[in-house]
Each structure stands twice: as C-alpha cells, then as structure tokens.
C-alpha cells in the first residue's frame, strides 16, 4: 500500500501503531526541514528513506525529543513526545550517524556507563554490557580502548550502547556508513536479528536503498522534508511487478491487444514489459497472443526494485510540486 503526500494507513492489523505523526513540521529559521508530515508507523522494522538532507535525521531527533517540532503532533508508544519525553526516551535506543564514542575508554566501560545512565543498577549494567557486546560481535575486544577500533568495530559499539538498556524501539541513523563490504553485510544481518529475534522495533534511517530493502518490512520515504510514500515493502513491491516478454511476429498487434484489455505495455523490437496489476494480466497476454498470432519465446515476472520504485515516487512528487 502506498500513502502518498499526506497520509499512510496500515495493512497489517496485528501490528499496533508505534509512531503517529500528524501534520508534523519543523523549521530552522526559513529552512523547512519537515513539512506537514502525517504518517502512522507500525511496530516493525521500518526504513526511513530519503536522500541526504531530506529530513530523516530531523525526524529522528523529533521522535527522540532532542528537538521540538514547529507545529503538528508526534506520538511514540501512544504518548506525546513533547509531553512525555523522559518516559519515551527510557524505552528508546539511539545509534547516531556521527561518531559518538568516548575514545579514551574501553568498549565495555562505555557501554556499561550508558546502561547506568539509562537507569540500570551497576551490576545489571555490567552484565548487560557484556551481553550486548557479545551480541554485536565484540566479545574478545570489549576491554580494548575504543580509539584502537576500526570503523566497523566502532559501529558495533554504537549499536551495543543503543541496546544495553533493552529498549522497545531502536533508532539507527545510517548504521552502515563507512563500513567495508564484509562489515556492511554483518551489520545488516545484526539489524535484521534485532527485530526478528529480539522483538525490538527498528527505525533504520538510510539513503542506501538496498539496505532498507534487505532489512526492513515497512518503508517511509521523505524528499525535501515531505512524505512521498509509506507502506509495507511487500505491498509496495507487489504493486510494482512487471512481466517481461520476448516475442516473434506482429508485436504491434499484440501490444494493442494487451492495451485494449486494460494493461500498460512498453518496449519495442520484440521485447515488451507489461505492468502487473493482478493475475488477470496473464489471461490478457494469452488472449492477445492468440489474436495476434505471435510466438512467445520468454515470459518472466520481475519485481521492481525499491530503487526504481523510489525514483518513480520522488519524480512523481517533484512533478506535482512544480507550478503549472
């Protein structure tokens, strides 16, 4: 399901609303960082998608209560962020995009300290820190100074500190930044586990569409501070399937036959793409092929990538914004 421009609704009733924004705006002077965002996000692994400067980090900061919105309402766990910031923050973990680690301390001491700051008793914070560093793959290295760590290891410490107090929701801001391919892959696997195995809702902010596609169930797209789409990835992708055909014979007649039956066709020289809407498209292709007498060499159903979908949605949004 796609919720363009101003609203988004859920398709899975078993996931209660986690975050609810209503006409949410944030201005920095004359700069509009977020503009009238209204969206309901479910308890899921949520991808916050948009180019650099789209407003993703601002949205995260508003949800954390680190910054106040200019107008509109924002609820997290059913609570107003401005009225109950502390109650909400206690249930949230945050992994910022930028470096945020005390270099002159060990990974264990740092994560334990963050656990204590989150309100855990000293002994529990110590045990949780050891567990989280183990979970994030830093068991042996936990007593080394953070300044000696590689970028990938620092990202793991950042993730461990976000999880140490056992949050119900964790915000991850560009968690794969600066990672090599192997570290990148391991980080995404770890994030997927956080939601699937640990049951923690994840909001993953990224401009890397492949990361979102791999890790997230739900996606929210922002461009120039405006919501351009939101929905379950499976729903969004289902509506974007297309069927690729390789034909011999009167291709023009075939294309006309498919269009006459209500389906979009594009392509030339015997290679055609038919947009999938429902299974009736297969009947239309069969009937048009029979009528036009074409020989069908291949028929492949292909899912549109999130990147193609995102580009379509953003282009559509930008076209809507242009003055007539």
């Amino acid at each position: 399901m796609t919720a363009t421009a101003d609203s988004a609704t859920l398709t899975q009733s078993d996931n209660p609303t986690l975050i609810n924004a209503t006409s949410l705006s944030k201005h920095y002077g004359k700069t509009v960082a977020l503009d009238q965002i209204s969206v309901e996000l479910p308890h899921a692994s949520i991808g916050l998608l948009g180019p650099n400067g789209a407003g993703k980090s601002t949205f995260l900061k508003l949800m954390l209560g680190l910054s106040a919105q200019t107008s509109g309402d924002l609820m997290v766990f059913g609570r107003d962020v401005q009225e109950n910031p502390m109650e909400i923050r206690r249930r949230i973990g945050y992994m910022p995009e930028s470096d945020c680690l005390a270099m002159d301390t060990t990974a264990f001491d740092f994560v334990r300290h963050m656990g204590e700051v989150s309100g855990l008793p000293s002994n529990d914070a110590r045990l949780r820190a050891a567990d989280m560093l183990y979970l994030c793959g830093l068991d042996e290295e936990r007593y080394r100074m953070i300044r000696e760590f590689s970028t990938g290891m620092k990202q793991r410490v950042k993730l461990a500190q976000a999880l140490v107090h056992d949050p119900d929701l964790v915000f991850l801001d560009e968690p794969t930044n600066g990672l090599d391919p192997s570290g990148h892959d391991e980080m995404l696997t770890l994030i997927r586990r956080i939601h699937d195995e640990l049951g923690i809702a994840v909001v993953l902010s990224s401009h890397v569409l492949e990361d979102i596609e791999r890790v997230c169930d739900y996606v929210m797209m922002i461009d120039s501070g405006r919501l351009v789409g939101a929905g379950y990835l499976s729903d969004l992708m289902d509506t974007r399937q297309e069927i690729t055909l390789e034909l011999d014979g009167d291709v023009e007649s075939f294309s006309e036959g498919v269009r006459r039956r209500g389906f979009e066709v594009s392509g030339k020289n015997g290679m055609l793409a038919v947009v999938y809407q429902d299974d009736a498209v297969f009947d239309a292709i069969r009937d048009a092929a029979v009528d036009s007498g074409v020989a069908m060499r291949t028929l492949v159903t292909r899912r549109t990538s999130l990147e193609e979908f995102y580009i379509d949605v953003v282009e559509q949004h930008q076209a809507d914004q242009e003055p007539v």
């Binding site: 954390l64 680190l66 206690r90 470096d99 945020c100 005390a102 963050m114 700051v117 107090h165």
Partner: peptide, 18 residues
C-alpha cells in the same frame, strides 16, 4: 570538552536525562 568533541551528548540526551 571530551563529551562535546566526541559528540557523546546526543547519547545522554536521548536517554532519561535532560
């Protein structure tokens, strides 16, 4: 100084601490 330079402040503020 270290908390500012190392950008640790958002971690404090995002927890139960104003």
């Amino acid at each position: 100084c270290d908390d500012r330079r190392e950008n640790v402040l958002p971690l404090y503020y995002s927890r139960g601490m104003t």
